[in-house]
Each structure stands twice: as C-alpha cells, then as structure tokens.
C-alpha cells in the first residue's frame, strides 16, 4: 500500500514536470504543442547518447540533454510557432503534429537510433528501506528531483523578473507588450524551459522504463489529459492533475487491472469534461 503510494508519487512527479512545460507554453503562446511528447522522447535519447557516446556521468548527461532539448524547443518557437502566431489556431496544431512525426521518424530510423528500445542503467542501483517500505533509489531520486525542479520553477515564476514576464504574458499578451515586455524573448524562453523540463523528466524515468521512439506518444496523451483536467495554461492545475492521474493509474492498475491503467486516465478525463468542460481549475472561458 505504502509502496504503491511512493510509486504514484514518483510517477506523478514525472507527469508534473512534463505537463508543466506544456501548460506554460499553452499559457504564453496559446499553442497546444503536440510536439511536446517528441521533445520528451528526444530528451531520453540525448541522455542515452551522452551516457554511451560521451561516457559522461548521469547528472552531466541529464544537463546536456536538457540544454540540447531547450535549444531545439527555442528554435522551434522561432522558426515555426512565432511566424504562425496569427494564423487560424488549427495551423500551429498541425505544424506541431508535423514536428512530432519528424522527431519520431528520425529517431526510429535505423541510421539514427533504430526502432528497438534502449536501456539506461540506474545511476544509483539498489534499494532503500524507509520505515518498512522498500524503494529503489531511482524512484526516490525521481521524487526528490521533481520536487526540487518544481520548487525552482515556482521561485523563478513568482520571485524573479524574467519569471514574472512569463506570468504577465500568459495573463494578457497585449497588456504585457504595452508595459514593455519583449514578447518574442518570453516566447522563446518559455519554449526553452518547457523543453528542458520534458528532457529532465524523460531522463529521470528512463532508467526505470525503456527508451523507445514511441514513448513520447503515450506521454503526450497523458500530459494533454492532465492539462485539460487542470485547465489549459494553469500551473497549479497541471501539478494537481499530474498527481491525480498518477494516483488513479497506480491504484487503478493495482486494484482493478494493469491493462486498464492506460485507459483509466482517459476515462477520468471524459467524466471530468462532461461535468466541467473548462477543467478543474479554471473559471469559465
């Protein structure tokens, strides 16, 4: 029981990191970035490449991967989403699908990484005993790291000027521009942060799950479910939604059936949307 609780906490932490990036981008750019799952998948592969190719340690590999994905995400904003900001809202969505397609096909191409799954060894092997509950070090690391990153992000958004510009822009784009915020820079920055968060999350969970080209697709659906649940663009909503989904999945999988675990999140989503279409944490539209 307690065991399941820790599993759910670790899973929720990963979901929260990925969902936070997605919800930040949505808040600032009003783009549902379907390529987000692709960035997440790319993050795991970059970590894998840094570990095996550059032979660096786990932490430097994680940082390298976060930087790489952040750079790519910022580039994506500049080249694709910025020019499309005034297009009908289905256009950036379709472009994002194109990017997701591209990333997945590129990674699974035999000359790049190939379609087979890759394994990242745990940086801290073994288990730890916490008051009668046995946990792997990796799960504990995930919980600690995700909480740390979330606290850091919260500090950044609430206490620093740059962070405040992101919040300002998600509240009112025109207003932000009027008070002299460089909305172009904020857009790029938000995409970069979102990419880095996805890469960190992917690198954290990668030692537990295998790294596959399709890992992004599943995660994509889950984090989109989460941010719809929490209300699109809402930061606390994304965190609560992430843990809600993780707990339902872990306990649903435990008590009902494992096959069911993947569907349960969507079932929950359907119910919530039928009752509260604007999500749990947003007032009206």
């Amino acid at each position: 029981m307690l065991q399941q609780l820790f599993n759910a906490l670790a899973l929720g932490g990963v979901y929260a990191l990925v969902a936070l990036g997605l919800t930040l981008v949505y808040g600032v750019m009003r783009v549902p970035n379907f390529a987000h799952g692709g960035l997440y998948m790319l993050g795991a592969y970059l970590t894998y490449a840094a570990l095996t190719g550059l032979k660096v340690g786990y932490v430097p590999a994680l940082i390298l991967s976060a930087l790489g994905v952040a750079l790519l995400a910022a580039l994506m904003e500049r080249v694709i989403f910025h020019p499309l900001r005034n297009a009908p809202h289905v256009h950036p969505m379709i472009a994002a699908i194109g990017v997701l397609f591209f990333l997945e096909a590129l990674i699974s191409h035999p000359k790049v990484f190939g379609p087979d799954f890759k394994q990242i060894t745990e940086p801290l092997p073994g288990i730890v005993n916490l008051g009668g509950v046995t946990l792997t070090w990796q799960r504990l690391l995930i919980i600690a790291a995700s909480v740390l990153v979330m606290l850091g992000l919260n500090y950044f958004l609430k206490r620093t000027l740059t962070g405040a510009t992101i919040e300002a822009m998600s509240q009112n784009r025109e207003g932000a521009r009027l008070v002299g915020i460089n909305t172009n820079r904020v857009g790029m920055l938000t995409f970069a942060i979102s990419g880095a968060l996805a890469a960190v999350a992917a690198s954290l969970i990668a030692p537990i799950n295998a790294v596959t080209p399709s890992m992004g697709e599943v995660m994509n659906l889950k984090v989109f479910a989460i941010i719809i649940l929490g209300g699109m663009g809402s930061v606390p909503g994304a965190i609560v939604g992430a843990f809600l989904l993780a707990f339902t999945e872990v306990f649903g999988g435990f008590y009902i059936s494992l096959d069911f675990a993947d569907v349960i999140g969507f079932a929950m989503l359907v119910v919530v949307l039928a009752l509260r279409p604007q999500g749990l944490f947003r007032k009206g539209t």
């Binding site: 020019p83 194109g98 990017v99």
Partner: peptide, 19 residues
C-alpha cells in the same frame, strides 16, 4: 524508408506557406 521524415516537415511547410 524516409516517409515520415519527409512528411513531418512537409506538413509544417504546408501550413506555413501554402495553407
């Protein structure tokens, strides 16, 4: 072999330049 590596960017270019 390169189908989706080509299709992805094609989708992006289409919405950007020839919607």
């Amino acid at each position: 072999d390169y189908q989706y590596i080509v299709f992805g960017p094609l989708l992006v270019l289409l919405v950007m330049y020839a919607p």
